Amino acid sequence: MSTAAPPCVAEVPPVIPPVFLAGTEAHGLHAAAGEYRLWLAIPQVPPPPGGFPVLTLLDANASFATVTEIARQGAVRAGATGIGATVVAGIAYPGEAPYHRARRGLDYTPGPPAEETVAHASGGRDAFLALLRGPVAELVAARCPVDTTRQVLAGHSLAGFFTLDVLAHDPDAFTDYIAISPSIWWDQPRLLAGLRQARQPARAPRVAIGVGEWEQGLTPWEAGAPEAARTAERRGRRAMVDNARAMAERIASTNAEVSFRVYPEENHGSVLPVAISRALRFVLGQGGGASAPGV
């Protein structure tokens, strides 16, 4: 009685290099606060006559690939999406961690929070902004033609607070601003004081502010968690949705064009990919866009 031949065993393929994001490049920068990485995605098309718009993206370790692909996909059909070819200049920190709590806590803040205590250092905001306006902007301009009239700063969470703080205190640093889930609770009085006193830029900035519906409370699946009460208290105290709406209304009372949106069924961790394409369309579209209801 013959026996069946053993099944063929597929040869295990050799390990190949990890996936990388084509059309991007990395540069190192040194500053007093430490080492930085500048990740650039430069459109692989001829620049428009005035140069490319530039999106300066904070927390690039967490979101550079996501935002770059959203910007690229938008540019494929710019006439339909309203998003033209755009340089993405991501500011990252050395290492693999998506968020570098201590470094961002220093870079994105003008000082300690108004009503809470944090363990990391704060107050590096001015030095970090100088890095963005000096070495970062110069390096980007050296790599491709840029449109100095279309310079967008984008940040999420504490980087969103930094974005609004730059708008409030240094409105000429960038032309347009995207603040997603901004941590306004960090120092709301400072933001409001800056908006009252700031000299208005010659061209009205476009400001997109977005926040997730569930950022001020619990998601449905968190309700029964052991830490639910503590989480709900903290989110209620920080009032992410209410503060973002009030800040959008305040900014709209200046000469800014403002888009404010609350994204249904999104939380602090999930809202960025949903919000960024709407925000890019608003700040980079030829005609801007209508402000959302309530602004």
Rank of each mutant, 00 (worst) to 15 (best):
L40P: 00
V15W: 00
G123C: 08
G105P: 03
P112K: 13
E35Q: 12
G74C: 12
H30R: 11
L131H: 12
P98S: 07
P43F: 06
L21Q: 15
G105Q: 08
L58K: 02
G82D: 08
Y108R: 09
A75M: 10
P94M: 09
A60W: 05
G51F: 03
P110I: 01
A60H: 10
A137P: 05
R37P: 00
H100C: 06
P110N: 03
G84S: 11
A121H: 03
D126K: 04
P47D: 03
S122A: 14
T109R: 03
P98A: 04
Q44E: 12
L129Q: 05
G111Q: 07
F52G: 03
A119M: 02
L21G: 09
R101T: 14
G23P: 10
W39A: 13
D126G: 08
E96Y: 03
L132V: 10
L21K: 11
V88Y: 00
R104L: 01
E116R: 08
L132N: 09
V54F: 02
P47Y: 02
W39N: 08
Y36M: 05
P98R: 05
F64A: 13
G79D: 15
G74W: 15
A89Q: 05
Q73R: 14
E115V: 11
A127H: 08
G124T: 13
A71H: 11
P13A: 14
A121R: 12
H100T: 07
V45E: 05
A127N: 09
A80Q: 15
V67Q: 13
A130M: 15
H100P: 05
D59R: 03
